[in-house]
Simulated assay, not measured.
Amino acid sequence: MLSFFKRKDKNIEKTGSDSVVDSRELLGNGEGEAGSEKLVETELSFHPKVHVGTEERYYFQFLQNELPPLKENQISLSGIELKKDEDIWQIVAFVRNSLAKSVKFKETPLLLIGPDGEKLGRKVFNLADIGELPAASSRPWVFEFHQSDLEKEELPATGWKLAFEIKAQQPEQHRLDLHESWEKSLAENDKEKLEKLVSSVEPPKKGEVNFMGIQAAKAEDGSLHVTLLVRNGSMKNLKLEKLPLIVEDASDEVIVKGGFNLDNFEVKANTSKPWTFIFPKEMLLKEEIDLSKWKAYPPQKG
């Protein structure tokens, strides 16, 4: 590893292009984070076990300073240079991380792509060798392609890029998300019933947020308890601070209107969370209500 980045060419110029992926596409929802428009500048990072000479440090620092910022929570491969040594092509690239936390990679297929988007080669790399990549950092790394990994004998001098091969995945099943208080207090058979309900009904459309009634009943003190599933079809976590609700009974008449202040109520991406909303007796607009059929919904905007 001593001469890992030993260079002969004195020219300081990047010959490759950049590719970018959302961290969740590459790392999965468990490790990746939802993207945003916030821009993140990355800082140069070297593997702790790689010795880099003064000249090489200057070279990589200069190129790192020229890199454009990434959007928050992205992973990027930024092509630096390629050279051939007998039947091995050595491709140097920055591996960039714009998450606010360090990341570790696994065995991952990489594509070598030409200036016109054509596939030049493919190889599976054990990216764990790169080590733990710090938050908001760029780490130079050498990727070796044998001639057998390539579809062409020669590679273009400029305009090429490395890219993660992201295969289209089946969308994760919409699932139940329980608040901590429900998790602790709800009986196991009731949890199972809710899980079956969430999995049996058609999930919300991609990006859609809606509400599904579960139960409505009057308590002994005359208050109305309405339990809803808050269904988040988005791939981002949803936070509700306030929620106005209208409830109609079997007569299609409005029986109550009210607004609720929610304390940091969060529904995780692609999940449904049940919650009970309590309307005091004094808020009811009718004394006699028929809950054999009912619906609850937020008022339409505009």
Rank of each mutant, 00 (worst) to 15 (best):
S3F: 06
F5K: 02
K8D: 07
I12V: 13
K14Q: 13
L26Y: 15
G28R: 03
G28E: 07
N29E: 10
E31T: 05
E31D: 04
G32N: 12
S36G: 11
V40W: 05
L44V: 01
H47K: 07
P48W: 02
V50E: 11
V50A: 06
H51I: 08
R57A: 01
L63Q: 05
E66Y: 05
E66A: 15
P68Q: 14
L77Q: 01
G79V: 00
I80G: 06
L82R: 09
D85A: 06
D87V: 04
W89C: 03
R96D: 05
S102N: 06
K104R: 06
P109G: 01
I113G: 00
G114T: 00
P115C: 00
E118S: 09
K119W: 08
F125M: 01
N126Q: 08
N126I: 02
A128L: 10
D129T: 11
R139G: 01
P140D: 01
W141S: 02
E144S: 12
F145N: 11
E151P: 01
L155Y: 11
Q169R: 11
Q170T: 13
E172N: 09
E172P: 12
L176S: 04
L176W: 11
D177E: 05
L178W: 07
H179C: 04
H179A: 11
E183D: 14
E183K: 08
K184M: 15
S185L: 04
E188W: 06
N189E: 09
E192R: 15
V198P: 07
S200N: 13
P203L: 01
G213P: 14
Q215V: 06
A216K: 10
A217D: 10
E220R: 04
D221A: 00
L224Y: 08
H225L: 14
V230H: 12
V230G: 01
V230S: 08
M235P: 03
K239L: 14
I246V: 14
S251L: 03
V254L: 00
V267A: 01
K273Y: 08
K273G: 00
T276R: 13
F277L: 09
I278V: 15
K281R: 13
E282M: 12
M283L: 13
E287G: 05
D290H: 02
D290T: 04
A296Y: 13
Y297Q: 10
P298M: 04
P298R: 09
